[in-house]
């Protein structure tokens, strides 16, 4: 796990879950958030829903950002939400990557707070993360 901190700011855990090794997007988003003054923690590759949930709760983050490009999001993303809720936490989960718009409704039903599709610009990424964090309490 690696972190880049700005004291007192919003804290976001960005995570790669499952076997998907595409890490370009997650790193770009991590830097975008960091440059927007948000504290970012990156899990590294090959995490499970359990390890992501544990890290999110231990680090007491405001938002979890998942990056998924292998098509496994319908299976894995809701499992991350469930693992966080099973720990008694309401930390919201945002999903980004190759996610067709047809999947968004079902993902929302699975507890995903927001979906950022391919091509989402930097200001939208930051805005969605801030909005989701603010809606929490």
């Amino acid at each position: 796990m690696t972190r880049d901190s700005t004291p007192g700011s919003l804290r976001v855990l960005v995570a790669k879950v499952g076997l998907d090794g595409h890490d370009r997007g997650v790193k770009v988003v991590a830097r975008l958030l960091r440059d927007a003054g948000i504290e970012v923690i990156y899990t590294g590759l090959f995490q499970t829903p359990e390890t992501v949930a544990a890290a999110a709760v231990d680090e007491d983050v405001d938002v979890v950002g998942l990056s998924m490009l292998s098509g496994a999001h319908m299976t894995l993303a809701p499992l991350v939400v469930k693992a966080i809720r099973d720990r008694g936490s309401d930390i919201p989960v945002v999903l980004g990557g190759i996610v067709p718009s047809q999947d968004v409704e079902e993902l929302a039903a699975g507890g995903i707070a927001a979906v950022l599709g391919p091509g989402a610009p930097a200001d939208q990424v930051v805005e969605v993360v801030r909005k989701v964090a603010a809606s929490r309490s």
Partner: peptide, 17 residues
Amino acid sequence: MPTLLGLDSDDPMALGE
């Protein structure tokens, strides 16, 4: 992905992939 990472289809990490 499981094959690319040398995992069998019934490996727990292969779930959804």
